[in-house]
Design a protein around this nucleic acid. Structure first.
Lengths: 143, 143
DNA sequence: TTAGTTGCAAATCGTTTGCATCAAG
DNA sequence: CTTGATGCAAACGATTTGCAACTAA
């Protein structure tokens, strides 16, 4: 948590932006989340703490957290964006069950290596990536 | 092209759906495309041939092509969906330049193997995947 | 006091849908 | 004829934005 707060503080002062109590409430709720969360979902959680915070502010702050480097954004097959933070959450990829919607996270260094090889071949400098495996999870395939 | 048309014909008769001249126009324009295309872009191309075709029909047919197995859909970081066909286009992944927007396609069997290993570990049955590497292409990094 | 932050509602963007009409089989 | 295909405009869901009021520094 300390590292994330620091990251945000740095970003804010660098860009001449401000802290605010609502921004803090949103950050706290966001960092409390373990997995992915949509703006809508985060809005609900935040509203348990402070019902005066509107959805627009959630979007504005998620964008800010993203720009500050403490949130990642992904879009799966459906429409809405999912956000997740980096606190206790280094990079990983996703297995997504198309039947029940379950999302499993995994890490695999082999894949990262192979990616570097590929990038080298195309003289490409990788800054980030996403790998998503779609299919059926064990529960759903045994049904 | 023959294979794709056949695929569509099979799908149509299986589902008791019909051919139509507009559907053909859309299919032809779609198969002519080499890379990814958005619904909007395809609409423009189709309209050069037949300006009476509306965007809703483009969406309806892209969905149909997708269900019939002759189109793939992906969403990159931004909102809109991109479609691509399987004619001369077997599965591949993408390198995406964040500066100029260039999209390079690549194939890598090693990665596919590793994916299967990961899926096995989680008793997951993979039906599809997406791998996107974001970064800077050679041109943009030399500027 | 100056500029960033927020709520609200309206606007926007990509996509889907209801309905009346048209056309394939 | 029967039912799928289509155009149009309205509806939609997610996200963004303009504006006036608010608040951090």
């Amino acid at each position: 948590m300390y590292k994330e707060k620091q990251l945000l503080t740095n970003f804010l002062s660098e860009k001449n932006l401000r802290h605010s109590s609502k921004r803090n409430t949103i950050l706290k709720a966001f960092l409390k989340e373990e997995g992915h969360i949509t703006a809508e979902e985060l809005h609900k959680k935040v509203n348990e703490e402070d019902p005066s915070i509107g959805i627009a502010t959630i979007y504005r702050n998620l964008k800010l957290f993203h720009d500050a480097g403490l949130a990642r954004m992904s879009r799966f097959e459906k429409g809405e964006a999912h956000y997740e933070h980096n606190y206790l959450h280094t990079h990983h990829d996703h297995l997504i069950c198309l039947k029940c919607g379950k999302i499993i996270e995994f890490k695999n260094p082999e894949i990262e290596e192979t990616q570097e090889k590929i990038a080298g071949k195309h003289k490409f400098k990788i800054t980030s990536h996403r790998l998503e495996l779609y299919g059926t999870c064990s529960k759903c395939s045994s049904k």
